[in-house]
Design a binder for these strands. Structure first.
Lengths: 220, 220
DNA sequence: TATTGCAAACTGTGATCACAGAATATAGAT
DNA sequence: ATCTATATTCTGTGATCACAGTTTGCAATA
């Protein structure tokens, strides 16, 4: 059962917000699969709440195109076309590239240690072929970089992109053919950050985002 | 009274979506002022619907930070700090700059005629000091440019930025000291598009977005 | 056995009510 | 006249119900 709503733990906000956050996380790490249906009443029972908070959470995710919602039809996780996926990764490259340039100015040694740890988690998850752990570590790594900008508007917009690409990436990496040439990318980013190399960090971050498109091309 | 919900006109979607779209437009053109309160029940009466669709629209706008919502307190239009405004215009410059570069590759002569018309509307609205017409024409101009990318994810993200900066810009331009040096920017963008100058269009578009920050600095 | 049609189950949407906390206005005291 | 305490009004939130369109499954027919 879901622990998200345990009321003894101090959680911010109302029920809708908590359910929204939980579903958002599940989308990012690929716990929800493309074309999967989400029913208000079913989720309400799982979360042990009424339909009210769930419908608001689902509507909110649908408004961000993290879910597809049509009248009188069940909400479902989008199954992206190649063009849609490419569009999302393009925006991610633009935003994360700009963020990385700023991050290179502000990064501290403590930040680099944290990034290195996330990278260890990433490779550990890859060894175990654990898709959700892998995606979560990847998200944590990237998020730490663009959070260094201190620009909350920028952060939430990039977050929204990870929510939308999560389900598709989870499918993609489990069928990945050649991950080797990409696995060292994060190390290169850390190295560029260490040198406070703005242009280099930006270029590497843009490349890393573009990797998502590569995955897609391999799968056809 | 609001005509948005006239049911004889074929409108897409449900009540929540229509109310959301109407409020979104009002935010973009500055019909809603910073720190203004929005009550679910009051709006429900204005739109002649129950509270249900309104609360979903407001919640959705709050989730995009287009409105501020706290438990048991009225929703209200955000009153941006200088840092928050600068952050928003930074993201706008990044996204619109990247979009403009692509637009310069795809722009047609028909597009340029449309852009020129929006620019005429813009200057006409300025002569009359009509803030909402001015902001709407400005939005139309920019939107036409970044819609040329065909990237819907990119478009909706930029749209969200106009929603958030609208109320603040509406206040800003009415108190604007020196608009002259900025009024020709759009003409320069059109000229760069005519020449299919990717780098130039991008640079000019980034500058134009940065103008929003300038406005703020003038006002203190 | 395959196909068609109908009924039952399931879907989101909108309306309405109860509730608790926040804001406001009013009346009382100093 | 000013400050304070209290009552009233207003706020979003959650739950529950009715409704109509969609999907699904089962049974009857060819």
């Amino acid at each position: 059962m879901n622990q998200v709503l345990a009321s003894d733990i101090a959680v911010p906000g109302n029920l809708s917000t908590r359910i929204y956050a939980d579903l958002q996380r599940k989308l990012i790490v690929g716990d929800l699969r493309p074309a999967e249906n989400l029913s208000i009443r079913t989720l309400a029972e799982e979360y042990q709440v009424s339909a009210m908070p769930v419908r608001e959470a689902l509507r909110q995710l649908a408004s961000e195109d993290a879910l597809i919602g049509a009248a009188k039809k069940a909400y479902r996780v989008p199954d992206l076309t190649s063009e849609q996926a490419a569009d999302l990764f393009f925006v991610r490259a633009v935003l994360e590239g700009a963020a990385a340039e700023i991050a290179a100015e502000r990064v501290t040694d403590a930040d680099i240690k944290i990034l290195a740890k996330h990278n260890v988690d990433l490779e550990s998850a890859w060894e175990k072929r654990h898709a959700s752990d892998f995606l979560f570590a990847n998200y944590q790594f990237h998020r730490h970089v663009y959070s260094l900008t201190g620009n909350s508007a920028l952060q939430s917009m990039i977050d929204a992109l990870y929510v939308r690409t999560g389900p598709w990436l989870a499918f993609g990496i489990t069928n990945l053919v050649r991950p080797d040439k990409w696995m060292g990318e994060h190390d290169n980013i850390i190295a560029a950050l260490k040198q406070r190399d703005k242009a280099g960090t930006r270029r590497l971050m843009e490349e890393d985002a573009r990797w998502g498109v590569e995955v897609f091309r391999e799968l056809g």
